[in-house]
């Protein structure tokens, strides 16, 4: 039972994020981890794709411990929005630590620069691939709302969406059901997936 749910999340997510420019996924808290696992599965599939994973819910350290390999993939860059503000000092080549989750502008700059840098590195590499897919994962918007006003998050989100569209970047946004106020933002997405406790809509 459990496995089939994870399996189906995995399948739905991986297809959806590939075909749609932006995907909003609403998930209950108890399925959050399963969803992450599903997303990470997609992230590992193709090492040519460039991923930026913004974590506001868990620290990078926690992700490292829970998901092990994923944090070592060179094509995946993490942006940890909460460790620095919580006074946790951590360092990693695969992760950028944002000073504070209110520094949303810096967050956007960091995301965009990551794509720029990675793209440059890739175009210098020998086996070039012409169509590199780029993805942003935001986990989660509700968590950003803990630290910021809803108005500013709306502006932030729309800026992220617009910039991504212009640069042809896929955006995967996680909305945790129990987190308040964020669910209206899901409407910005081309495709919405709702994960229920035991099935997917």
């Amino acid at each position: 039972m459990q496995d089939t749910v994870i399996e189906s999340i995995r399948e739905r997510v991986s297809v959806a994020i590939e075909v749609n420019q932006s995907v909003g996924i609403q998930v209950p808290e108890n399925r959050h981890k399963d969803l992450l696992e599903a997303i990470f599965h997609s992230m590992c599939r193709n090492t040519y794709d460039i991923w930026t994973f913004i974590t506001v819910n868990q620290t990078f350290d926690y992700l490292t411990k829970t998901f092990k390999e994923i944090t070592k993939q060179p094509n995946i860059k993490f942006i940890d929005c909460i460790s620095r503000a919580a006074g946790i000092s951590d360092n990693s080549n695969n992760c950028f630590f944002l000073e504070s989750p209110v520094m949303l502008e810096n967050l956007i700059l960091e995301v965009m620069n990551n794509f720029k840098n990675k793209k440059e590195a890739m175009s210098n590499a020998k086996n070039k691939k012409s169509d590199i897919d780029k993805y942003i994962v935001i986990d989660s918007l509700g968590a950003l709302l803990i630290y910021n006003d809803s108005e500013i998050i709306r502006k932030f989100y729309s800026l992220v969406m617009n910039r991504s569209r212009a640069e042809n970047i896929h955006v995967v946004s996680i909305f945790v059901e129990e987190e308040l106020n964020s669910n209206q933002l899901i409407q910005f997405n081309d495709k919405i997936i709702v994960v229920r406790d035991s099935f997917i809509d």
Binding site: L104, E105, N106, I108, L109, N113, I152, K155, L159
Partner: peptide, 19 residues
Amino acid sequence: ALNISTQRGIELIPLLKSS
């Protein structure tokens, strides 16, 4: 909003405003 990146120097992005 201005960011001083240790690599890229000064970077700018429109400041997000709230009421």
